[in-house]
Design a protein around this nucleic acid. Sequence first.
DNA 1: GTCTATATTTGGATAGAC
DNA 2: GTCTATCCAAATATAGAC
Lengths: 193, 193
Amino acid sequence: MPERSTRAMIVEKADTLFYEGGFEATSFADIAAVVGISRGNFYHHFKTKDDILDAVIARRIEQTRGMLALWEAEGDGPRARILSFIRMLIANRAKIMAFGCPVGTLCSELAKLDHGAQGRAAEILGLFRDWLAGQFRALGAGDRAEALALHVLSWSQGVAVMASAFRDETFLHSEVAGIEAWLSTVPDPAPLT
Amino acid sequence: MPERSTRAMIVEKADTLFYEGGFEATSFADIAAVVGISRGNFYHHFKTKDDILDAVIARRIEQTRGMLALWEAEGDGPRARILSFIRMLIANRAKIMAFGCPVGTLCSELAKLDHGAQGRAAEILGLFRDWLAGQFRALGAGDRAEALALHVLSWSQGVAVMASAFRDETFLHSEVAGIEAWLSTVPDPAPLT
DNA sequence: GTCTATATTTGGATAGAC
DNA sequence: GTCTATCCAAATATAGAC
């Protein structure tokens, strides 16, 4: 087994290119060039572009599961775990200001392309939603846990869109502070907000 | 002057196709087919695809200005005017669930394409931001008016992304209700939220 | 598994007749 | 202003040698 298979390299580089340049705009030639293989060799590993997309989404699902498991193990209580999620916006701010959220922008693009993989891409958001809902339940949010989870997810998506549209890091920081302030009022926030 | 010029038809149809299918994925052939003209004729009106994009963005800017002016004239006070903005999410829910927000998704796509027109697309969001800030100032929000405007804009962008990712109309309605509840607390909301 | 070469299609763009 | 015909480049995909 090599240190990293060609197939794994293709998926890894395709993931980055799809994020930074979009799925539709990324060609096989682009991926082959970055991986350092010929276009012909490419087809030995993947028959169609959709196959690569499937592999990229599968990879992202796995990485998301891994990250959530890590936060689950590391976080000191549900509130701190939710903060781990929110602070992704800060940790990845440079990329988010340049390219938006990897998951949100992929879902948006696939929706327009009417692409069959849109549902699988949305599953990644579903992982975050379910994990966040679990944390809110642990905070005592009860029936409102899922709504609160969707709210946090939605809020972070909005911040990502706006931060990339305006390239505004100040806005990003102030909204993250706003989410944190809101979180400190859960499970009993004034309006739903 | 014809009832509607070919050029205007091209811009109108391109606007729809760019929204529903994305800029990159929409070809000249697609636009020509919908307009009902030959590809050759196309180039009599626009030299490049970027020229069409410029015209589409200019059209959207004009339409946005017109809509804001209408809300300004019709709305009964700043709070009702802000509600006009928020309720776009409800009025356009079918298209938003299918294709997201026309402006947010265009900005996201152009950011990934590293396209020069990204800034002009973001100007449309800027129009909403400035208009909303004016309404919040009229509500007595003072220095916080622009931050509140960005917050509403960001919130609606998040709702659009999530509603299209999950095709979830219930979520869309409940978040709109949440924005309205929050708005009723402005200019003195508990946290920034 | 990897390469070169090539087939096929599509997309952006032009020339010139009507 | 509109059309047909055409060019060129790029993209997906395949065949077959090494």
